[in-house]
Nucleic acid binder design. Structure first.
Length: 811
RNA sequence: GGGCACUUAGUUCAGUGGGAGAACGUUCGCUUCACAUGCGAAAGGUCGUAGGUUCGAUCCCUACAGUGCCCACCA
């Protein structure tokens, strides 16, 4: 090849864009539905398309999974790598509400959904652009969005199937409720938040005498249904079965005892309300207490609260306390820090509201879920304990109905007369929207009534997301292939959604197919800013990913993403990206050098290295292949990169290329570039110059090509560029990403004895360099003499040291 | 309160039952003909603390401390 085909510098900006188009045009990453190769299928995380929060953390985690996918593709697997977008449900609604400053209760459902769909579309475009720039090698003909009919159908099928299997029930019970989003929530939708609060001791009257009760939620006073004390608390024995008068509201409540009361907390006398926490609910059930809902679903006080009616929780709390002060019934107040359950999407403290919802039963199968968790292969392994912790602490079945607009509708109608649930009979009828459509049957099978009302609620977004392995597999129409794609091979995801996405998917697969949804789980950490803080919108500490991509190039950013061990959080680091850029340049330049000497060269099919130098580097190459393969197999891309880099930069560039120069530059056919200082090198002992040169060129060819392949999963652009410039015409595969992953060739192993011997030569070479450095002499300049005390080394390698390290005489 | 992870050079992190390492940064030298986005070299650490096991511990065990995360919870 002519030098002018190989420009002096590599312009990542134009070349990356070029290869993006090339890969798309040539369908390099397209899934072959007829392939006989073993399948590697990926349950790709569908990101929320409300794309404003898109940041480097996403780049990190998607890259990390993609390193492995590319590796598997080169290993000869038929890779199924679809891409989804999660665009239904509450997150999208919240995003749209905020962006357009909307109030759900003041806008038509149809109009609201229209806006959601629009945002969804914009978001998806954004993502596609970014993933393409990053070189994510998914198959863009296999995409889904969780609001599309395909996903709706599968979600609704899931509902039907669970209903038939008795895993699904609709019941009325106190459930976590977000007053802001005005919907029921599942346990997994809640987060902890520490907050400073006041604990106040307020006065109740019992038989005309004052007794004090400590509470952090005085606004629930109108919901008080009983007082409780510990059965062994001597202070209150005499109160058993008596009545207390609730202050301000002046009504009687029973006084009971229960072991769950902590004698030492507050005054030891506890007020039970409708419902401040889970303990209240337990006692409400156990003792069949009254239901006094003092808080409405909108988070304001109800008519039970009389003069406080309509006030929001915070306001009512302040007002009641100040009234207590006025009437002198507030004994003492203390500041305490306590933890609240807040809705993770909006940060509002959750309340309990008695409503009728659909639940998927979980609590009865905890042991089975744990068993499933043990069968999964976790990378890193310790992430398993997060799953276990969550399953063990589950306290609620999964509430899947949300009182929202934008989401998959429930495929269910209710008989107006007898409330019987009517479900579509056939899967083919799905998806349906009972909010818009009538059921197929004409009269209720139970009571014969002809009037029905469609379910208005939308499904929890995880109801759809938990089906992604199946959603992905069913993008392929061929039945047989579908069975190969599901369960998936790999689920890559972030650790914070183990309790939701991962857990719910395991549940679904167990209930639907009695199988695992996938075999391997790869858990990534999140991206942190330069100071180590989590990247968040609130802190405004994120950098526009597209901007960095065009400035530094995808390869450099992907290089940064290899920096963290799997599962560890990683800081954004301009330094690491710079290193990535330098590596790209280094690969470019090393390749330029090699190609300068490989013009019109045809590599031998099988060759035996003739020179110790060649044998040394080829032996090292085998070690590197072996280790890199093992690391990638275990999802340890970070270690793989390190070992490849060590070999490439230090062994290959710093040493081998220097050692081999004197042979290359004595190529008589390349007289043009003969350098005076290398003349005479053909006298190298033991071998004919031509033979020796041939060995060098074959070695260069093989080692460089192999290094490119090893780097290809991490640096897809630069490796493709170089492959296409030179190797393609010989290797005849249309992209480096379709070539086969290198295999360890034992034929290149070097006997231990020779290795030990050569390590002495390397030490001598280091010593010569050190000597020159210390004397301030350029490494290119010849020195008079250098002493090698080992006679054997001196005899065998003296000439080599003379020529490659520029020493006049080895003594 | 329970659990998990982490604690090694100025920084980011590898690592192993017997020699303490890399990269970046720092300092010094080198216009070297693939690459100054480079090459060579140097300085720099009681491997969190205290015990234990062992002939020998940075590594294994125990306790403690600090950091981060997850989970539960006092009304």
């Amino acid at each position: 090849m002519a030098e002018n085909n190989f420009p002096k510098t590599y312009d990542h900006k134009s070349r990356e864009a070029f290869w993006q188009k090339f890969w798309e045009r040539e369908q390099i990453y397209k899934f072959d539905e007829k392939s006989k190769k073993p399948i590697y299928s990926v349950d790709t995380p569908p990101p929320y398309v409300s794309a404003e929060h898109l940041h480097l953390g996403h780049i990190m985690s998607y890259s990390q999974a993609e390193f492995v996918v590319r590796f598997k593709r080169m290993q000869g697997f038929s890779v199924f790598y679809p891409m989804g977008f999660d665009d239904n449900g509450l997150p999208t609604e919240r995003y749209v509400e905020k962006k357009y400053n909307l109030d759900k209760s003041k806008i038509e459902r149809a109009e609201f959904i229209k806006k959601c769909l629009l945002e969804t579309k914009l978001g998806a475009q954004n993502y596609k652009k970014l993933w393409t720039s990053l070189g994510i090698s998914c198959d863009w003909s296999k995409t889904y969005s969780t609001i599309n009919p395909h996903c709706q159908k599968i979600s609704q099928w899931s509902f039907l199937d669970l209903y038939k299997k008795g895993k699904l029930v609709r019941r009325e019970e106190p459930i976590h409720w977000c007053p802001k989003c005005q919907t029921a929530l599942a346990q997994a939708d809640l987060e902890d938040k520490e907050e400073e609060g006041l604990i106040s001791e307020i006065e109740f009257q019992i038989e005309g005498k004052p007794y004090f009760v400590a509470t952090t939620r005085p606004e629930l006073l109108a919901a008080c249904v009983a007082l409780f004390f510990h059965p062994k608390d001597s202070r209150y024995q005499h109160l058993k079965n008596k009545k207390a008068i609730v202050p301000i509201f002046n009504y009687e409540v029973p006084i009971l005892s229960d072991l769950s009361v902590d004698k030492d907390f507050g005054t030891g006398l506890m007020m039970v309300c409708t419902w401040g926490d889970i303990e209240d609910i337990k006692k409400w059930k156990k003792y069949d207490l009254l239901h006094r809902p003092a808080i409405t679903s909108k988070g304001t006080l109800s008519s039970l609260a009389k003069k406080y009616q309509g006030q929001n929780i915070q306001k009512a709390r302040e007002n009641i306390l100040s009234d207590f002060k006025k009437i002198g019934k507030l004994k003492k107040q203390e500041k305490i820090t306590h933890t609240l359950n807040i809705h993770e999407r909006c940060g509002t403290p959750a309340e309990f509201v008695l409503t009728r919802q659909w639940f998927i039963s979980l609590l009865e199968n905890k042991e089975k879920f744990l068993a499933r968790g043990r069968k999964l292969r976790w990378f890193p392994d310790h992430m398993r304990s997060r799953y276990n912790d969550w399953v063990k602490t589950l306290a609620w079945d999964w509430c899947i109905s949300r009182q929202r607009y934008y989401g998959v509708p429930f495929p269910v109608w209710y008989c107006k007369k007898c409330q019987k649930a009517i479900l579509p009979k056939e899967e083919e009828d799905l998806p349906v929207d009972p909010r818009e459509e009538e059921p197929k049957i004409k009269k209720c099978p139970k009571c014969g009534s002809k009037e029905f009302v469609g379910e208005k609620d939308a499904m929890d977004t995880w109801m759809t997301s938990s089906m992604t392995p199946l959603i992905g597999a069913r993008l392929v129409k061929n039945d047989k292939m579908q069975k190969k794609l599901y369960p998936a091979t790999l689920r890559p995801q972030a650790f914070e959604i183990i309790r939701t996405w991962l857990f719910y998917t395991v549940v679904k697969s167990l209930y639907h197919h009695n199988s695992l949804p996938f075999f391997d789980v790869m858990i990534s950490g999140h991206g942190l800013d330069e100071k180590g803080r989590k990247i968040s919108k609130r802190l405004k500490n994120y950098i526009e990913p597209q901007k960095i991509l065009s400035e530094c190039g995808a390869d450099a950013i992907r290089y940064w993403a290899t920096g963290a061990t799997l599962g560890e959080n990683m800081r954004f680091s301009p330094e690491e990206i710079k290193k990535g850029k330098r590596l790209v340049v280094k690969i470019w330049n090393a390749s330029r050098f090699c190609f300068l000497h490989l013009r019109n060269f045809t590599p031998a099919k099988n060759f035996t290295p003739k020179d110790f130098c060649d044998r040394w580097i080829l032996d090292g190459l085998q070690k590197t292949i072996g280790a890199a393969t093992k690391f990638f197999e275990n999802y340890e891309y970070s270690k793989a990169r390190r070992i490849i880099e060590d070999f490439f930069w230090h062994d290959f560039c710093d040493r081998y290329l220097e050692f081999v120069k004197y042979r290359l530059y004595t190529d008589s056919s390349r007289a043009v570039i003969l350098k005076p200082r290398f003349i005479g090198a053909e006298e190298s002992p033991g071998f004919q110059a031509s033979q020796n040169l041939d060995s060098a060129k074959n070695t260069l060819y093989l080692v460089l090509l192999t290094i490119l392949k090893l780097y290809a999963p991490i640096l897809p652009f630069i490796t493709e560029e170089i492959y296409q410039l030179y190797f393609k015409k010989i290797e005849k595969v249309k992209s480096i990403h379709l070539t086969l992953w290198p295999k360890v060739d034992k034929g290149f192993f070097w006997p231990e004895k020779e290795k030990v011997e050569f390590s002495k030569v390397l030490a001598a070479a280091d010593a010569i360099r050190k000597c020159k450095t210390e004397k301030g002499i350029s490494l290119g300049k010849e020195i008079e003499s250098f002493k090698v005390s080992d006679k054997k080394i001196k005899e065998k390698f003296g000439k080599f040291l003379q020529k490659s390290l520029r020493v006049k005489r080895i003594i």
